[in-house]
Design a protein around this nucleic acid. Sequence first.
DNA 1: CGAAACGTTGATATCCTTCAACATGAGTGG
DNA 2: CCACTCATGTTGAAGGATATCAACGTTTCG
Lengths: 245, 245
Amino acid sequence: MSLGAVPCSECALRRLSAFAPVEGDELAFIQSMKRAHFRFDAGATVITNGQERADLYTLYSGWAYRFKSLPDGRRQILNFFLPGDLVGLQASMFTHATYDVVALTDIQVCVFSSSRLWDLFRAMPTLAFDVTWLGARSESLVDDNLTSVGARSAAGRVAALLVTLFERADTLQLVAEGSLEFPLTQQHIADALGLSLVHTNKTIARFKRSGLIELRGGRLAMSDRNALRRIAQSFESEITPRPLV
Amino acid sequence: MSLGAVPCSECALRRLSAFAPVEGDELAFIQSMKRAHFRFDAGATVITNGQERADLYTLYSGWAYRFKSLPDGRRQILNFFLPGDLVGLQASMFTHATYDVVALTDIQVCVFSSSRLWDLFRAMPTLAFDVTWLGARSESLVDDNLTSVGARSAAGRVAALLVTLFERADTLQLVAEGSLEFPLTQQHIADALGLSLVHTNKTIARFKRSGLIELRGGRLAMSDRNALRRIAQSFESEITPRPLV
DNA sequence: CGAAACGTTGATATCCTTCAACATGAGTGG
DNA sequence: CCACTCATGTTGAAGGATATCAACGTTTCG
């Protein structure tokens, strides 16, 4: 499972314009905190509810998701992780995790010792600030999902989710020729949006029939993103990259 | 609106066992970051959506709430603030606020310069760590609300919200003789839970009639917290007839 | 005392869930 | 290569939880 790691200085994520440049001492510190580079198969559990002293991860490639389960078997997906996302910050700051994280596709992650998080705060305030910023951004994504689930119709929820994921993927240059490798099943969408599987299916079917989206064979394309935004009454909070400190 | 401030060393919140002790340098730094001590009337806006360089606040007394609005006038309340909560961390880390914060009761807040947040990270790593921890806890509260709205019935949502608020208030010693000053209107509850006002009212009415809660004149009491907890978790399984095998 | 905010209740409408059945595709072993 | 199975997707019908509409009651407060 462990892998000959690419050094952080060569990290492919670093080359994307979506990420702020990091250099010198900071890069060295990140490298020193990195404990391993793992792979997980699709469906594998990365963090389990109740787990103590969970590690901190950066998702290097692939998709994952975070959810809570209720005793009756229902579950609520809280957010989806795309490459570059920080996974497990909450879990690594609390004594035990309050959610599960599962790989949606085969994934690769960089593993950081959560026990050294405190060292990072002491030695590298700029990085600590970044971590906090990433945590705030993560909350902002959950805010958006809550707004969707609480205040939008089924069609609005689906539209908002698809547009948001599409645009996040686009930023990461995962969209090629207008379409995107899309690993969510309709059950995932239903669990994220608080809808039943059947109704989710019918809502998506309507979007397909009206030509707003194409979704076959695990690829998603959308012909008219603005129409979908209108259905969602969209106004997703756009977050600009962290200000220079 | 500004007020002769109580020095941080005398802060009433500090005496509550719910808060970790802070001393010496750290206390002095907090004091130096504190720019003012404000009052807001109930209904006043503390942070507005889109606002730039919002300040960072600690809620000193009273209740507040945070919400997002949709173009059609619906709004989603994301979470409620009780004394001691950090208000506006997201807004002060991003260039623009992506939500509104409004006072639910008359409140007092301590105002910190968000422009000095970076100084805090550089000079006081322990406090920076605390800030990040508070941010993570805040996300965790939103997680819980999302789970409620996405996966519970109306009765479950109301029960979960009331129990959660009751217990948070209890920790702050706001519960006296089993009851609590409870400033939410049913419209607030509806907006937080993604329910209509009428249905919220009927759900609460059922709880009242069955004696699970008392709620009159702005005070809330609950006779059987465990029963409410059960309703919050087990959803329909309490009502659904056992399937025949 | 009057107005405005908040709460309550019944009737009706609808969105969404549940149930049930079938279709399709991918992986697996014979 | 086929038969099988399991996960996923699709569709219609029926029921239920929640929304909407409308009216009235109650509290609060200037």
